[in-house]
Protein backbone atom coordinates (compact mmCIF):
# COMPACT_ATOMS: atom_id res chain seq x y z
CA UNK A 1 0.00 0.00 0.00
CA UNK A 2 2.78 2.45 0.88
CA UNK A 3 4.61 1.58 -2.32
CA UNK A 4 1.49 2.23 -4.38
CA UNK A 5 0.91 5.62 -2.75
CA UNK A 6 4.49 6.71 -3.42
CA UNK A 7 4.04 5.52 -7.01
CA UNK A 8 0.93 7.70 -7.26
CA UNK A 9 3.04 10.63 -6.05
CA UNK A 10 5.60 9.88 -8.78
CA UNK A 11 2.83 9.78 -11.39
CA UNK A 12 1.49 13.15 -10.19
CA UNK A 13 4.95 14.60 -10.71
CA UNK A 14 5.16 13.05 -14.18
CA UNK A 15 1.71 14.43 -15.05
CA UNK A 16 2.82 17.89 -13.88
CA UNK A 17 5.96 17.70 -16.04
CA UNK A 18 4.16 16.35 -19.09
CA UNK A 19 1.06 18.50 -19.31
CA UNK A 20 1.92 21.92 -17.89
CA UNK A 21 3.06 24.80 -20.03
CA UNK A 22 4.76 26.92 -17.42
CA UNK A 23 8.48 26.35 -16.80
CA UNK A 24 8.17 26.90 -13.06
CA UNK A 25 5.43 24.26 -12.96
CA UNK A 26 7.73 21.84 -14.78
CA UNK A 27 10.49 22.46 -12.24
CA UNK A 28 7.96 21.83 -9.45
CA UNK A 29 6.96 18.56 -11.11
CA UNK A 30 10.58 17.43 -11.24
CA UNK A 31 10.89 18.26 -7.56
CA UNK A 32 7.82 16.17 -6.70
CA UNK A 33 9.21 13.21 -8.66
CA UNK A 34 12.46 13.49 -6.73
CA UNK A 35 10.59 13.39 -3.41
CA UNK A 36 8.64 10.32 -4.50
CA UNK A 37 11.75 8.39 -5.53
CA UNK A 38 13.66 9.24 -2.36
CA UNK A 39 10.70 8.21 -0.25
CA UNK A 40 10.34 4.96 -2.17
CA UNK A 41 13.98 4.03 -1.60
CA UNK A 42 13.65 4.65 2.12
CA UNK A 43 10.36 2.72 2.29
CA UNK A 44 12.09 -0.34 0.83
CA UNK A 45 14.68 -0.35 3.60
CA UNK A 46 12.29 0.09 6.52
CA UNK A 47 11.96 -2.66 9.08
CA UNK A 48 8.84 -2.79 11.24
CA UNK A 49 9.65 -1.73 14.78
CA UNK A 50 13.18 -0.88 13.75
CA UNK A 51 15.74 1.55 15.13
CA UNK A 52 17.97 4.05 13.37
CA UNK A 53 21.30 2.59 12.15
CA UNK A 54 23.41 4.34 14.79
CA UNK A 55 25.28 2.41 17.47
CA UNK A 56 25.36 3.61 21.05
CA UNK A 57 27.85 2.27 23.64
CA UNK A 58 25.24 0.29 25.61
CA UNK A 59 23.87 -1.59 22.62
CA UNK A 60 24.91 -5.13 21.88
CA UNK A 61 25.75 -6.19 18.34
CA UNK A 62 23.05 -8.87 18.23
CA UNK A 63 20.32 -6.39 19.25
CA UNK A 64 21.60 -3.90 16.67
CA UNK A 65 21.65 -6.47 13.88
CA UNK A 66 18.21 -7.66 14.82
CA UNK A 67 16.43 -4.30 14.86
CA UNK A 68 18.34 -1.79 12.74
CA UNK A 69 16.80 -0.56 9.49
CA UNK A 70 18.68 -0.89 6.20
CA UNK A 71 21.48 1.75 6.09
CA UNK A 72 22.40 1.44 2.41
CA UNK A 73 19.40 3.30 0.86
CA UNK A 74 19.84 6.03 3.47
CA UNK A 75 23.46 6.60 2.44
CA UNK A 76 22.46 6.79 -1.21
CA UNK A 77 19.50 9.10 -0.61
CA UNK A 78 21.65 11.64 1.26
CA UNK A 79 23.69 12.18 -1.90
CA UNK A 80 20.54 12.09 -4.01
CA UNK A 81 18.95 14.97 -2.08
CA UNK A 82 21.98 17.24 -2.51
CA UNK A 83 22.19 16.36 -6.22
CA UNK A 84 18.50 17.22 -6.47
CA UNK A 85 19.26 20.66 -5.10
CA UNK A 86 22.00 21.11 -7.72
CA UNK A 87 19.59 20.13 -10.49
CA UNK A 88 16.98 22.52 -9.12
CA UNK A 89 19.45 25.42 -9.03
CA UNK A 90 20.52 24.70 -12.61
CA UNK A 91 16.95 24.50 -13.89
CA UNK A 92 15.90 27.67 -12.07
CA UNK A 93 18.84 29.53 -13.60
CA UNK A 94 17.79 28.23 -17.02
CA UNK A 95 14.24 29.46 -16.35
CA UNK A 96 15.53 32.92 -15.42
CA UNK A 97 17.65 33.01 -18.57
CA UNK A 98 14.68 31.99 -20.75
CA UNK A 99 12.54 34.66 -19.09
CA UNK A 100 15.19 37.25 -19.83
CA UNK A 101 15.45 36.14 -23.46
CA UNK A 102 11.78 35.73 -24.28
CA UNK A 103 9.90 37.59 -21.55
CA UNK A 104 7.63 34.67 -20.76
CA UNK A 105 7.54 31.36 -18.90
CA UNK A 106 5.17 29.73 -21.39
CA UNK A 107 6.89 27.07 -23.49
CA UNK A 108 4.38 27.37 -26.36
CA UNK A 109 5.11 31.09 -26.65
CA UNK A 110 8.82 30.34 -26.66
CA UNK A 111 8.39 27.88 -29.51
CA UNK A 112 6.34 30.40 -31.48
CA UNK A 113 8.82 33.22 -30.91
CA UNK A 114 11.60 31.04 -32.21
CA UNK A 115 9.77 30.88 -35.50
Amino acid sequence: MEYILSFVLLMIGLYCVATKKNIVKIVIGLNIMEYAINLFLILIGYRRGGIAPIRTPDMSLAYFLRYSVDPLPQALVVTSIVIGFGVLALSVSMAIRIYERYGTFDINEIKRLKG
Binding site: V24, N38, Y46, A52, I81, V82, F85, A95
Partner: peptide, 23 residues
Protein backbone atom coordinates in the same frame (compact mmCIF):
# COMPACT_ATOMS: atom_id res chain seq x y z
CA UNK B 1 13.96 5.87 11.31
CA UNK B 2 16.23 7.80 9.00
CA UNK B 3 17.33 10.87 11.00
CA UNK B 4 20.29 11.71 8.73
CA UNK B 5 18.03 12.10 5.75
CA UNK B 6 15.39 13.96 7.74
CA UNK B 7 17.95 16.64 8.68
CA UNK B 8 19.26 16.87 5.12
CA UNK B 9 15.76 17.07 3.68
CA UNK B 10 14.69 19.86 6.05
CA UNK B 11 17.65 22.13 5.33
CA UNK B 12 17.64 21.48 1.58
CA UNK B 13 13.89 22.06 1.54
CA UNK B 14 14.29 25.50 3.13
CA UNK B 15 16.87 26.47 0.51
CA UNK B 16 14.73 25.02 -2.30
CA UNK B 17 11.78 27.09 -1.15
CA UNK B 18 13.88 30.27 -1.03
CA UNK B 19 15.32 29.67 -4.50
CA UNK B 20 11.94 28.87 -6.05
CA UNK B 21 10.27 31.88 -4.43
CA UNK B 22 13.03 34.11 -5.75
CA UNK B 23 12.50 32.61 -9.19
Amino acid sequence: KAPDIAITQVVVEVLTLVVLVRA
